[in-house]
Design a protein around this nucleic acid. Structure first.
Lengths: 150, 150
DNA sequence: CATCTAATTGATAATGATTATTTATAGAAA
DNA sequence: TTTCTATAAATAATCATTATCAATTAGATG
């Protein structure tokens, strides 16, 4: 896990660079996300924020998440069956381990790419049932089109 | 790709085994899914069905998909940013290649697990930007609990 | 410090995919 | 044919997310 303090400062720097304001609500969110060990959902972030800022709107959470995603300062795990979850500590794609029953999400340590499942199972105690590996990119047609994403 | 005819017959067998009826709408769906080269969404299946059965309801599509999922006769790609898509030809987890612009989904050929992205890029012409690898299973707590999934 | 203005917030409506509900229909079994 | 149950169709409900817009405020400027 990256140093939360450092992540926080980095994100603040990026926000300022882009001319974005640092509101109290945003700062509170950045604090939560810079740790974000539990890969919180928007709803969970919302609940945490409301402890300090009871009037905060869920819309603000979503808007700020969207902003941070565009700056690559938060990574969204958009797997449908668990809903969207966010990682502001490691804001880039990486493998995840999801409990299909309770929805807990872990970041397995991840060295070589062979015998992985077994290794992860040993590390975490999870009984691994299946995995999903998805590659993203631009198909040849879209590369040629060279237009903005829809 | 598996032989669509064989997949169709296999799925029909499983349905009968479970005492499910083979209605015209279902048969039409099974035909589409046994090919399902394009990994269609529920909406896309709906449109295809309506060519032959104009009164078919979207709810029926969803119910049948749910039925087939439970029998492992269709695999659901539940990645949020592209919505749910279905594969009735290879009804088990496998890697996918998704164009982040047009949403096209391919099944890359997939041998060893090293130098994969580069290999896939060569095969398909995609420019690969990132990937997502997700492991699923039961966390230690849920294994002990031994209850039905929520 | 006071003023100004665009960025942001909060409240709420809208959206869109999926699920639930309810009534009608259609094969299978008696 | 009658009865029974699975399924279909139509539609309402749900739920996460996004859009809208008036009110507020961060932060620059004087």
């Amino acid at each position: 896990m990256a140093d939360p303090q450092e992540r926080l400062e980095q994100t603040i720097r990026v926000l300022k660079d882009k001319g974005c304001r640092l509101t109290p609500q945003r700062l509170a969110m950045l604090r939560i996300l810079s740790k974000s060990e539990g890969h919180p959902s928007a709803e969970q972030i919302y609940e945490q924020i409301r402890a300090d800022y009871p009037t905060t709107s869920l819309a603000t959470i979503y808007k700020t998440l969207s902003l941070l995603k565009n700056m690559n300062e938060v990574f969204e795990i958009t797997f449908a069956s668990v809903g969207s979850h966010y990682d502001g500590n490691k804001p880039y794609p990486h493998p995840h381990l999801i409990c299909t029953k309770c929805g807990q999400i872990l970041d397995p340590e991840f060295g070589p790419l062979a015998g992985i499942s077994q290794e992860i199972s040993r590390q975490t105690g999870y009984k691994i049932t299946h995995q999903q590996l998805i590659f993203f990119g631009l198909c040849p047609k879209c590369q040629k089109a060279g237009q903005a994403p829809e």
